[in-house]
Amino acid sequence: MIEYVKGELAELTPAVAVVDCNGVGYAVNISLNTYSAIQGKTSCKLYIYEAIREDAHVLYGFVSKQERELFLLLISVSGIGGNTARTILSALSPAELVNVISTENVTMLKTVKGIGLKTAQRVIVDLKDKIRTGATSVESGMTVPVGNSAVLEEAVAALTMLGFAAAPSQKVVMAILKDDPQAPVESVIKQAFKRL
């Protein structure tokens, strides 16, 4: 089992990083979150999940243990493989994903390419208890008080209907609600316009 690879960043694309470890180049599948974190660096350390199949040994790499932990939780859900889990982690940051699952925001999860209603519901049903019980050590830092999940969902839904992308909309709305937990939906949407 490979825990991590650390070395010179030989090549980098939004989907794959090639890490040179003492002359051996490891091609590692990465999420967009990891890509953003290591972009522009000459060396990196990626925490690894190794998927061993009959026809291939595939490495998935993550900039943090928390992201890898979420990846492992996602692939434990029936019907979600490594590439789908990576797509989810590319569309949502670990903090956003934890929030989406804990607030049972099916609508937000459905905005991820390739995730339908049934899969989104399955992810939430299978993982909400694991996330809540702290089986994952992800420090979200951006949780929304439970009473505000309705405001969050309504504001994000309104912004996506107005043509804004779902993930950035949720990020902005969560930040607004963190600053002003009592803000009504109209106020949140108006503030979000200025920030998006």
Rank of each mutant, 00 (worst) to 15 (best):
G116N: 07
D55K: 12
L32N: 08
P168V: 02
E69I: 00
A120Q: 11
N99A: 13
V63E: 00
E153H: 07
T84E: 10
D129W: 05
L32M: 12
I131M: 12
T133Q: 08
A166I: 06
L127G: 07
F71D: 04
M161K: 13
V151C: 06
L59G: 01
L46T: 05
G79C: 09
C44E: 07
K118Y: 11
M108A: 14
D126A: 09
S78N: 12
M161A: 11
S43Y: 02
G114R: 05
I38G: 00
R68T: 00
N105W: 13
I48S: 08
A120P: 03
A95V: 12
I52R: 05
L72G: 04
T34M: 12
I131T: 03
G163L: 12
L159W: 01
L32S: 14
I124L: 02
S64A: 12
L92Q: 03
G81K: 06
V156E: 04
Y60L: 10
V77F: 12
N83E: 11
P145Q: 15
T136Y: 09
R68E: 07
V156L: 04
S64R: 07
P168S: 04
N105A: 14
N148E: 15
L117C: 09
T107F: 13
Y49M: 10
G40Y: 07
A37N: 10
G61W: 00
V112H: 04
E67I: 01
S137N: 15
L32W: 10
L74P: 00
T136F: 14
S140M: 08
